[in-house]
Simulated assay, not measured.
Amino acid sequence: MANSFSILLLVALLCVSAARTKPQSIGNVDGGICKSLVETQGYPCQEHKVTTEDGYILGLQRIPAGKSAGNETAAKLPVLLHHGILMDASAWLLNSPDKALAFILADNGFDVWLANSRGTVSSRGHKTLTPLYPAYWDWSWDQLAAYDLPALFAYVNNQTGQKLHYVGHSLGTLTALAAFSQEKLLNLLRSAALLTPIAYLGQMSSLFIRILMDLFLSEKLKLLGLHEVPNGETQELVEFICKTPGVDCSDLLATITGPNCCLSSASKAALFKNFPQSTATKNMIHLSQMVRMGTLEMYDYGNEDTNMEHYKQPTPPVYNMANIPKDVPLFLSYGGRDALSDVNDVGLLLDNLKDHDKDKLVVEYIEDYAHMDFIMSVNANQLVYDPLLAFFKLH
Rank of each mutant, 00 (worst) to 15 (best):
378 V>I: 15
385 Y>C: 04
135 A>Y: 02
372 M>Q: 11
183 E>Q: 15
96 S>Q: 13
171 L>A: 14
183 E>F: 00
277 Q>K: 06
253 L>Q: 11
375 I>A: 13
79 V>H: 09
48 H>E: 11
130 T>L: 12
260 N>G: 14
371 H>G: 07
305 D>Q: 14
55 G>L: 06
377 S>C: 15
58 L>K: 02
372 M>H: 05
188 L>D: 10
112 V>Q: 12
263 L>D: 07
325 P>Y: 01
18 A>L: 04
22 K>R: 15
224 L>G: 03
282 K>D: 01
223 L>K: 15
75 A>Q: 13
375 I>Q: 10
74 A>T: 14
339 A>L: 08
15 C>V: 15
274 N>G: 02
235 Q>H: 10
340 L>V: 15
304 E>Q: 14
183 E>A: 11
24 Q>L: 15
277 Q>W: 01
60 L>Q: 02
266 A>G: 01
127 K>F: 03
378 V>C: 06
318 V>S: 08
109 G>H: 07
129 L>A: 04
390 A>N: 13
345 D>F: 10
273 K>C: 08
29 V>A: 12
152 L>K: 01
367 E>C: 03
146 A>E: 14
92 W>A: 08
120 T>G: 03
7 I>Y: 00
73 T>Y: 09
38 V>P: 03
167 V>L: 05
386 D>F: 06
241 I>N: 00
285 I>F: 02
301 Y>Q: 08
136 Y>Q: 09
327 D>A: 08
208 F>E: 00
279 T>W: 01
154 A>G: 03
200 Y>D: 02
373 D>N: 04
45 C>H: 11
162 Q>N: 14
145 A>C: 05
349 L>Q: 12
294 G>E: 07
281 T>P: 00
288 S>M: 03
312 K>N: 14
219 E>L: 09
226 L>A: 05
57 I>H: 01
363 V>C: 09
26 I>S: 04
116 N>W: 09
279 T>N: 12
